[in-house]
Write a protein that binds this DNA or RNA. Structure first.
Length: 136
DNA sequence: ATTCTCACA
DNA sequence: TGTGAGGA
């Protein structure tokens, strides 16, 4: 896994990212404020995005179109803690561990469903069951 | 020509 | 989220 450096290499300015993602500069900056992305900066304070940032923005865009809000996206997309999920499980006691585990499984299922765009007839699950995560 | 931050007749 | 101001 070595070309991860290439994918995380800051390359393009916001103008190009706008065309690549069909998002407005406003939206891109807004998502950054909410820590959904954290692009690099040039010495002149200009944002520089990597391939990963762009892909991430595309995922965010997809989720927003699915009707998911920032809080929800934070749950589904969490690069800020790839191992925090497991850490949560490891640091939990037997009883809460069972709960945390089911949460993580549900978490992954929801992500898969939202990203894969499955089950057209159960959009209610996205607003109902998912709200459980948004609120808490 | 581009992007940045801030603020809202 | 849009949009315009004012600066880099």
């Amino acid at each position: 896994m070595g070309d991860e450096i290439r994918r995380n290499m800051a390359l393009f300015p916001i103008g190009i990212v706008m065309k690549l993602t069909d998002l407005t500069a406003r939206q891109i900056r807004y998502y950054e404020q909410h820590e959904l992305i954290m692009p690099a900066r040039t010495s002149g304070n200009q944002r520089l995005f990597s391939f990963n940032d762009v892909e991430r923005l595309l995922e965010i865009k997809a989720l927003i179109e699915k009707g998911v809000n920032i809080a929800g996206i934070k749950q589904v997309l969490n690069p800020v803690s790839k191992e925090s999920e497991e850490a949560t499980v490891l640091s939990a006691d037997s009883e809460s561990k069972r709960k945390e585990l089911s949460d993580i499984q549900l978490h992954r299922m929801l992500k898969q469903q939202l990203m894969t765009g499955k089950r057209p007839g159960q959009v209610s699950l996205i607003q109902g069951e998912l709200s459980r995560f948004f609120t808490k």
